[in-house]
Design a protein around this nucleic acid. Sequence first.
DNA 1: TTTATATGTGAGACACTCTAACTTTGACAA
DNA 2: TTGTCAAAGTTAGAGTGTCTCACATATAAA
Lengths: 220, 220
Amino acid sequence: MSETNRIMEKTKKARTGNASGTARSTYHHGDLRAQLIEATRELVEEKGPDHFSVSEACRRAGVSTAAPYKHFKDKTEMLREVALGGMQRQYQQMIEELAPHPPGALERIVALGRVYVRFAVTEPGVFRLMFGLSKDHEGDEALVQLGNGTFGIVKQEVALCRGSDSIEPEDEGRAFLLWSFVHGLSFLQIDGKLTKMELPLDLDAVLHDVALRVMRDAQA
Amino acid sequence: MSETNRIMEKTKKARTGNASGTARSTYHHGDLRAQLIEATRELVEEKGPDHFSVSEACRRAGVSTAAPYKHFKDKTEMLREVALGGMQRQYQQMIEELAPHPPGALERIVALGRVYVRFAVTEPGVFRLMFGLSKDHEGDEALVQLGNGTFGIVKQEVALCRGSDSIEPEDEGRAFLLWSFVHGLSFLQIDGKLTKMELPLDLDAVLHDVALRVMRDAQA
DNA sequence: TTTATATGTGAGACACTCTAACTTTGACAA
DNA sequence: TTGTCAAAGTTAGAGTGTCTCACATATAAA
């Protein structure tokens, strides 16, 4: 980030960020927290959330294994940051993919599902993290908020598709059906359960199909 | 198992299995492999698949930490056994819950979904394991076979419900929709995403609803 | 009875998480 | 300009965990 560069330049003997492998010459790192989160994200993708280790993130960031504990309470907190970033990205992508379609169109609901699955497939490690962390993070405010936000979009769109501006219990039910479905689909996909049983998946067709089935008697 | 008892009695000075805490007096354990698997299963439930440790299973079984490696290649293989057992139980439960309902009844499909979710809720640790293990077990024959078997039941029932004895591609599609849904629902449930957003879930109603929506135009 | 094999133990190598005490540096007040 | 402090590094090491190796012991087979 630009903050890194700024600090790097203040320090006359500035070297490149050590994520690139170059040994740094400054004692202070400049942007360690952010770089550790990024290293964590990369490793979670590469090895999966289970096989991530703080040590390896340290190696990648070029600092000692004790360094992270100046920025994070523990390993779990590092992972939490990555999960949080993932949820923000997913939320953002949903907003973006919604834009091209007219309000109330079924296509908007399909778009949401597409984003959900695409995110899972593109960042399976982070996606797993976002849901596998729950045991350790029972009551994490930020995570719960973001989760509610994302689900809120779905509820909103279901209501809109029904022609209403306010969300009724009925909409929550439908939104929940949709969510369950794409959630399951995502996991089955990234767990390779689909390729095993030669189901040639036309994702878009399936998403349309499901959206129709779920919204059918509300469309009128 | 009865095999345990048999061996225990052969050894005259037989003591109770040490899973119960009693120190054993025989050098040889008698049934360590099975007891380790059981200890693993328990721990996976208690602490979750992530926080399971071989050491702790050893403590629980009352043997040294090196002992398991006479029976299992590594930690992952121990977990695999537990996952396998889980899949067998799930399969068995499906068969059982199918029996009370007449062939072709929609209720059979609902029953399958109910078993799926019930299993996940009853044994969340093992359930997670069954699907979280895939990174390490890309090509495990037994696991894939069992998985196919379970999904096979669903396909079978979908076809039957449609009034056919042979499974058509159309049935596979529907079976897949159903599977995705209950899979997602199960995970959302055990991850506590439902209680957070006060969705008072009438599981049976939802399962009926979904089964109807998915089977609707095939019923005729 | 002897011997071989299966199954246990103990010691230890190596990795990982996290803490404690120390060091360096940049920022800021005097 | 300089002195001091807090922030953010480092090294050392305790504690836990996985897994291997050499050795011990009981069971089964000869």
